[in-house]
């Protein structure tokens, strides 16, 4: 099932939750909608599911207009952040719900329903919980049951709204891996919403980065990490150092110092320089574009993180390999190995 969204606009009062969104999702993709809260990602997901309606724009599934159908007709599996399980039903009945409410003409026989539910509970590896009530399950188990329930109707599309948002860090990591392998197994076109970049980059085939109701960038996890299209994406994904610079006379200036960086093709005026923490290489004073003094060093797993005060006023944090000798008070030179400059 392909999904196409064209020029979607949705306003809540004067606040534009979606401000002209275009998106194409290919068959069998696992797509992440990534953005800070208020970026419109959940609104977009709910409109695709038929739980919300846009003010203008189009949504089509396989080329056919989806907005003409309600949530019920769209055949979309939806997984909620807080599970939304039916608490008066057992796990088994929760998963069976979508099969039991089908119109009589297409409804399966009881035996077939039982077999299908059993199969789904096996798929999410929770068949031993069939007779429990949702309140007796852990968060991770509840979310897997919610997923099994959504899959019971053999949805054309699977939509997940912050599916791991309410779970603790360890369970999140497990479920991420599990979701990836599950998608590999069932291969249904899926979109999940998250504000956690690590989750998006680890799970999705393609990542859509959103901010303020607009799409900032669409690309593979490598694309959005390695070549961010906008200042927002660079700042949002991965840990970035952000420095105010000026482009003038074919040079990049930081404060009143010209930097030894190429300024080809850059628009003159105020700009921002983005560098990943680990892309700032440490050398002796005078060896790089920046000069600075080390304020503090902390060890962090495979790296050491140094707080450096730059000549020019800003204080930044860089990541250097553990074998590099750094001490508080050292004067150092810094050269960005890779960087991007965005106007504005």
């Amino acid at each position: 099932m392909t999904i196409e969204v064209r020029n979607l606009v949705k306003k809540f009062g004067s606040f534009a939750a979606l401000d002209g969104v275009d998106l194409k999702v290919d068959n069998g993709e696992l797509l992440a909608l990534l953005g800070p809260s208020g970026s419109g990602k959940t609104t977009l997901l709910r409109i695709i599911a038929g739980l919300d309606w846009p003010d203008s724009g189009e949504v089509s599934f396989n080329g056919e207009d989806a907005l003409a159908q309600g949530a019920r007709e769209r055949h979309v599996g939806f997984v909620f952040q807080h599970y939304a399980l039916f608490r008066h039903m057992t796990v088994f009945e929760n998963v069976a719900f979508g099969l039991r409410v089908q119109p009589r003409a297409v409804r399966k026989e009881e035996a077939a329903i039982r077999a299908r539910v059993k199969e789904l509970l096996d798929l999410v590896q929770l068949d031993w919980l069939a007779d429990r009530y949702p309140s007796q399950l852990s968060g991770g188990q509840r979310q897997r049951i919610a997923l099994a329930r959504a899959l019971a109707i053999e949805p054309r599309i699977l939509l997940l709204d912050e599916p791991f948002g309410a779970l603790d860090a360890k369970v999140r990591k497990e479920l991420r891996k599990w979701l990836r392998s599950l998608h590999h197994e069932i291969n249904v076109t899926s979109i999940f919403v998250t504000h956690d970049q690590e989750e998006a980059l680890e799970v999705a085939n393609r990542v859509v980065v959103m901010d303020k109701g607009r799409i900032e960038q669409i690309g593979s996890p490598d694309d959005v990490y390695e070549s961010p299209a906008t200042a927002f994406v660079h700042g949002f994904i991965g840990e970035s150092i952000e420095l105010p610079v000026r482009i003038a006379d074919g040079m990049v200036r930081f404060g009143d110092r010209p930097l030894a960086l190429a300024a080809d093709g850059l628009v003159p005026g105020a700009s921002r320089l983005f560098v990943r923490r680990h892309d700032m290489l440490v050398g002796p004073p005078g060896s790089g574009a920046f000069e600075g003094a080390v304020q503090q060093v902390r060890n962090f797993g495979p790296v050491q993180r140094a707080e450096v005060e730059l000549a020019g006023g800003e204080t930044i944090e860089i990541d250097a390999p553990r074998d590099k000798e750094l001490r508080a008070g050292d004067a150092i030179g810094l050269q960005p190995r890779r960087y991007r400059i965005f106007a504005g």
Binding site: L51, F78, H82, F86
Partner: peptide
């Protein structure tokens, strides 16, 4: 009672009536 419960029932194919009766 969370309104999400009703949305969940609806997206699973339940009619308004079925949602009221069953959920």
């Amino acid at each position: 009672l969370d309104p999400e419960i009703e949305e969940a029932a609806g997206s699973l194919g339940a009619s308004r009536w079925q949602t009221i009766i069953r959920v």
